[in-house]
Design a binder for these strands. Structure first.
Length: 263
DNA sequence: TTCCATGTTCCGCA
DNA sequence: TTGCGGAACATGGA
């Protein structure tokens, strides 16, 4: 689930449900999801405080506390958030539960336990320490900055799009969609991209991510002329051609050979 | 039972 | 140094 559009949905969800509510307790049911902080330290840092703001960088969600500290959430491959009213029992497989006053709760779920939660002092330091590039939807990221981010990459374009150090937020699913709209084959070397191809990649990155957010980050709800609703090998591309699957960097990559001719 | 999965990181190799 | 393939992490669904 959690690529940029999903995490953006989480951001709006937290903003709507969980800000300015005093936290009573943090229930850590699976300590493995805690990165740099123990369960007792997390609890003492949060209890009595409230989240005051929430922002997103790439696939990372950053929650400000009224103490000045921040909680950094990453969702791995399967993480999500669910908010519960006082009379709703949280699902039993929550990894972490943030208990607010009056019985409301925010639950952090992650079946595969690949996500992490860190307690940090400064989100910009955190982003820098992790070597993250600019957020893919940052208004400051214009076409020249995007081209600069890809510049010098020696590998293939799908890997470069997913490289969080170049541009943050694009994962395996949406890189396929972006390449599909740009009519670029996923194995095209970055060095072989000409000006028009770079322009199409930038435009489709912005369009695809915004459209995905508008559709609630549910790939199946994307327009029919998108690739993701047809992302199975043998399925028909909107153009009538057949969707093909290949493996790139250990990940499955789907594309339409008719719309995205081999480099 | 086996394979595969929306992420990240580490290792070995070229 | 860079990039790639593969493995590991842990779990559930097809």
């Amino acid at each position: 689930m959690p690529e940029l559009p999903d995490v953006e949905i989480f951001r709006a969800y937290v903003a709507k449900t969980s800000l300015h509510r005093r936290i009573l307790d943090v229930e850590v049911r699976r300590p493995r999801v805690l990165g740099n902080v123990s369960a007792p330290r997390l609890n003492s840092a949060l209890a009595g405080h409230a989240f005051t703001a929430v922002r997103r960088h790439g696939k990372h969600l950053l929650l400000a506390l009224d103490s000045g500290r921040w909680l950094a959430m990453h969702f791995g491959m399967t993480g999500s958030l669910h908010y519960y009213a006082a009379d709703e029992p949280p699902a039993p497989d929550a990894r972490i539960l943030f208990d607010f006053v009056r019985g409301n709760r925010l639950g952090y779920y992650d079946p595969r336990v690949l996500g992490r939660i860190n307690l940090i002092d400064d989100p910009d330091d955190y982003i820098a320490q992790r070597g993250l590039g600019p957020d893919a939807l940052d208004p400051q990221l214009k076409r020249p900055q995007f081209e600069a981010a890809l510049h010098g990459a020696k590998g293939i374009v799908k890997a470069a799009l997913m490289d969080q150090g170049r541009v943050a937020g694009i994962g395996n699913l949406y890189s396929d969609e972006i390449l599909y709209h740009a009519h670029v084959h996923p194995k095209t070397p970055v060095a072989a991209l000409d000006g028009p191809a770079l322009r199409r990649l930038y435009d489709s990155m912005r369009t695809v991510l915004k459209e995905a957010i508008a559709r609630g980050a549910e790939p199946e709800r994307l327009p029919r002329d998108y690739l993701l609703p047809h992302r199975r090998s043998g399925e028909h591309c909107p153009c009538g051609g057949e969707v093909e699957k290949t493996v790139i960097a250990g990940r499955s990559a789907y594309f339409c050979p008719r719309c995205q001719p081999a480099p």
